[in-house]
């Protein structure tokens, strides 16, 4: 059940160029891997959608790339600060898979640690644009890691039930190689619960709201 609560920040930890934001769980349900939460950055008008990265007991943890004013504000939070968190939202990954393989690119690895936990640490392939970014692979110790110019699609993905999250070109490439893969997409959104129509994407020839119909879609 989705709820919005003011939660206390437990810690922010650097993970390569990213920040792992750990907040108390409060009364929120961590939801299914691939679902997301709207986090309200202090001083900003709109909340930001973030998939859950880890769900240690009593905590929710989000991996954040400080690329704009909202994400920078979230990364600058300190232990003891409070932020509003709303979720879990959207549809997560379908966990009924026989030979799971997790595929992640860049900040798109965010939902994979929680997903790996739910699936019993399946094999994983992660791609990053630099060695510094690749430090985030520490969140998924069992993963094979490639760094640009090597791409995740240079690895053998066939024969697996692929569950992927990453930049759009990567998702399109994975979809072409692995029909039936589960892909977690991203789109700018204002609300996360179907109110703003900002995150519309074309699905089966119709424009639909990614926050309601996704963010995980079948390839």
């Amino acid at each position: 059940m989705q709820r919005r609560q003011l939660l206390e920040v437990e810690a922010t930890e650097p993970v390569g160029p990213y920040t792992l934001l750990r907040v108390e769980r409060g009364g929120l349900d961590p939801g299914r891997p691939g679902q997301f939460f709207m986090l309200s950055p202090p001083g900003r008008v709109l909340p930001r959608p973030m998939s859950l990265c880890l769900a240690p007991p009593g905590e929710l943890a989000f991996l954040i790339d400080p690329i704009g004013p909202g994400t920078r504000s979230l990364c600058e939070l300190e232990a003891g600060d409070e932020i509003a968190v709303f979720g879990p939202l959207g549809n997560g990954f379908d966990l009924r898979v026989e030979r799971p393989l997790l595929v992640g690119g860049g900040i798109g690895i965010a939902p994979l640690p929680y997903l790996a936990e739910a699936l019993g640490s399946p094999p994983a392939v992660l791609g990053f644009r630099s060695e510094e970014h690749a430090e985030a692979a520490a969140l998924l110790p069992q993963a094979d890691v490639v760094v640009d110019p090597t791409l995740v699609t240079d690895c053998c993905l066939e024969g697996f039930d692929v569950l992927a999250c990453g930049p759009e070109p990567m998702l399109h490439a994975v979809a072409a190689l692995c029909p039936g893969a589960q892909l977690a997409w991203e789109a700018p959104m204002a609300c996360g619960y179907g109110a703003c129509y900002g995150c519309a994407v074309e699905i089966d020839g119709e424009w639909k709201r990614l926050c309601v119909e996704g963010p995980v879609l079948a390839a």
């Binding site: 909202g70 789109a187 700018p188 129509y197 995150c199 119709e206 424009w207």
Partner: peptide, 12 residues
């Protein structure tokens, strides 16, 4: 009306 193409939202 399908509406406008993305990006459709920008915070200021």
């Amino acid at each position: 009306r399908p509406g406008n193409p993305p990006v459709r939202i920008a915070e200021t």
